[in-house]
Simulated assay, not measured.
Amino acid sequence: MSPFLGEIIGTALLIIFGDGVVAGVLLNKSKAQNSGWIVITFGWGLAVAVAVYAVGAISGAHLNPAVTIGLASIGKFPWEQVPAYILGQMIGAFLGAVLVWLHYLPHWGQTQEKDLKLAVFCTGPAIRSTGANLISEIFGTFILVLAILAIGANKFTEGLNPLIVGFLIVAIGLSLGGTTGYAINPARDLGPRIAHFVLPIAGKGSSDWGYAWIPVVGPTIGGVLGALFYASVFGA
């Protein structure tokens, strides 16, 4: 399997489990409905762990353009491979969102709230404030990339790293995710948002394109800053 295909499959798995847990919590007549933010954050953490286990040996399991660009910015990943990785991540995120839509197909028509349907696919702010929302996404992704690099510098029992990264996602969600829903990944937000836009979802509303640039630009900036901070302070 090529790294490009690995990123497609890994990111699709990430979205299947991640958007899937959000759908279970938010959509009407789901058995998981109203189970809350802690369930969502643990679902996303496990989504990351499973995806990294699946394709880590194939592509390094970036699964996130902010990680790919951040690693490239400090010389830990070749720039010439960045476009293919990002394309694979976007394709995988879109496909994963389509599969979540199909899995929950009867539930869309049973859910009247358009904002809840959109939230299954992509993030949105708790309080809409452009500057604060952008800073939130920058800071969350700064912590993500910094911590991933720090975790990678430690020696764990073989095969434990993906699980630790999964717990990192849970920690970021619990501590920092309440402001914007912690996209911290441009592909995770934009790919499913495009899916929301093109799919015939029963009773859907706007895809909120006015906000869509924040979970793309913010994580990209944060990823680069987190990588540069690690390289300069930790000397890696």
Rank of each mutant, 00 (worst) to 15 (best):
G218W: 07
Y182H: 15
I172A: 11
V22M: 05
K31P: 00
T180K: 11
H107S: 05
A227Y: 13
G88R: 00
V145I: 15
V145H: 11
A147G: 09
L99Q: 06
S175F: 10
W108E: 08
T220A: 06
G75V: 05
I148P: 13
G173K: 10
K114I: 15
M90T: 00
T220L: 13
G177D: 11
I91G: 01
P125Q: 03
M90A: 02
L46P: 01
G10H: 04
Y104V: 06
I138V: 15
N161P: 01
I143L: 15
A147L: 14
A212D: 09
A54I: 03
A150E: 13
G222M: 12
D115F: 12
P186L: 12
V67D: 01
I148A: 15
G60Y: 09
V145E: 13
A147K: 06
G96H: 01
D115N: 15
Y53F: 14
I214M: 08
S136E: 05
Q81A: 15
W44I: 05
L163Q: 07
Q81F: 10
S35H: 04
G10K: 04
V224Q: 06
L116M: 13
Q81V: 02
L105Q: 03
H196K: 06
T157L: 07
V48I: 15
L163E: 06
E158G: 06
K76L: 15
M90R: 00
A93H: 00
P200N: 04
F197P: 00
A54V: 04
I172Y: 08
G20N: 03
Y53I: 07
T11K: 01
A72I: 11
A119M: 08
P106D: 01
P78C: 15
W101L: 05
I38H: 10
K31G: 02
F139E: 05
L13H: 00
T157E: 07
A171K: 09
N154C: 11
L102R: 11
A126R: 09
I143Y: 11
T11N: 02
I38F: 14
F17H: 04
I74H: 07
K155D: 14
G205P: 14
A66V: 04
V233S: 13
G124K: 07
L144D: 07
W209R: 10
T68V: 14
A57G: 13
I135A: 15
L160P: 06
S136I: 02
N154S: 09
A119F: 03
G235P: 04
W37R: 08
I15Y: 00
F229H: 05
V100R: 01
G210E: 12
M90H: 02
V216Y: 08
I172H: 08
F156G: 03
L14T: 01
V165R: 10
L14A: 01
V217T: 03
P162G: 09
G226I: 08
G159C: 06
L174R: 02
G131P: 12
I16D: 00
Q33I: 02
I164G: 14
A212C: 10
I135W: 15
N154E: 11
M1Q: 08
N28G: 07
V50P: 03
V217I: 10
G36R: 11
A51R: 05
S59Y: 02
Q89K: 01
A202K: 10
S207Q: 09
V198Q: 08
